[in-house]
Computed example of a mutant assay.
Amino acid sequence: MDDPSNDHQPPTFLQMLQSVLAAAFGVQSGKNRARDFSHGKPSHFIVLGIVFTALFVLVLLGIANLAMHLAGV
């Protein structure tokens, strides 16, 4: 099933995004974690993590503002 020629390829953007999302929820698989640590660049994961966190906070603020607006506060 696994392509042995793909073992030394760096993770794709979608694989890195999946890893960041899985890390946010604490459900990263051992196989993906090993791939990330052996072939991924830490700077890419750090930047994606910061962007994800900023977007998450902005979405929460938007939801809170919408709820306050609908409540008439």
Rank of each mutant, 00 (worst) to 15 (best):
M1S: 13
D2G: 03
D2A: 12
D3L: 10
P4L: 08
S5R: 15
S5M: 09
D7F: 07
H8L: 04
Q9A: 05
P10F: 06
P10V: 00
P10D: 03
P11D: 01
T12R: 11
T12I: 03
F13C: 03
F13K: 14
L14P: 02
L14C: 05
Q15M: 11
Q15E: 14
M16A: 07
L17T: 13
L17H: 09
Q18A: 06
S19V: 04
V20A: 09
L21R: 15
L21H: 15
A22H: 11
A22K: 05
A23Y: 06
A24Y: 13
A24L: 00
G26Q: 02
V27R: 00
V27E: 08
Q28K: 08
S29E: 06
S29G: 08
G30E: 10
G30T: 15
K31Y: 08
K31H: 08
K31P: 00
K31T: 15
N32L: 15
N32V: 10
N32M: 14
A34E: 08
A34K: 09
A34F: 06
F37T: 05
S38N: 11
H39Q: 12
K41G: 05
K41F: 03
K41V: 11
P42M: 08
P42L: 12
S43P: 01
H44F: 02
H44I: 07
F45R: 14
F45W: 04
F45M: 13
F45Q: 07
I46S: 05
I46L: 13
V47A: 06
L48M: 12
L48P: 01
V51L: 06
F52G: 01
F52V: 02
T53F: 03
T53W: 03
T53I: 03
F56M: 11
F56D: 09
V57Y: 14
L58A: 10
L58N: 05
V59L: 13
L60R: 11
L61H: 08
L61M: 10
I63D: 07
A64V: 10
A64N: 06
N65D: 06
M68S: 04
H69C: 08
L70I: 13
A71S: 04
G72K: 01
